[in-house]
Amino acid sequence: MKLTVNGDEREVETADHESLLTVLRERLGLPGSKNACEQGECGSCSVLLDGALVCACLVLGAAAAGREVRTVESLADGDRLHPVQRAFVDMGAVQCGFCTPGLIVSTYALLKENPEPSDQEVREALSGNICRCTGYGKILEAVQRASAGMYGR
């Protein structure tokens, strides 16, 4: 099957019960999207599918044929971190880091639609991403910092 991943058209084989998450991680060498719950609860596998934030673990790999996928790997420009990534690092919103890629993608998706979200809107937008370490305080601060960083407030 063919699909577009991070701007490049890729051709890949997939077993029929395999999720898009497995295709990305194990067949396309993109381990940024994490695999934890495989039931849509944790958000660590968040990607953009035709621009919409979804859990890659809930997309059948074969059903992604012809579609456009963006993963966390697409955000940094070479060695230069994306403002969302920069903000997470600067604000200490990363501890073990397992949840981070998913949160970065969700934050990116939020700020793309809503450049200046309220705290309530941030909480709502990140409600599908679970973090076991930080207690979320630093993450909320990082999102506000990213919003300022991206849009020069």
Binding site: D16, H17, S19, E38, Q39, G40, C55, C57, L58, V59, L60, A62, A63
Partner: peptide, 22 residues
């Protein structure tokens, strides 16, 4: 359709569909 029910079933081995129509 969106897969949010079916993929959970597949991922946990509770469904093994032999033919899927997307």
């Amino acid at each position: 359709a969106g897969g949010t029910d079916l993929l959970v079933e597949i991922n946990f081995g509770r469904a093994r569909p032999t033919h899927v129509i997307v």
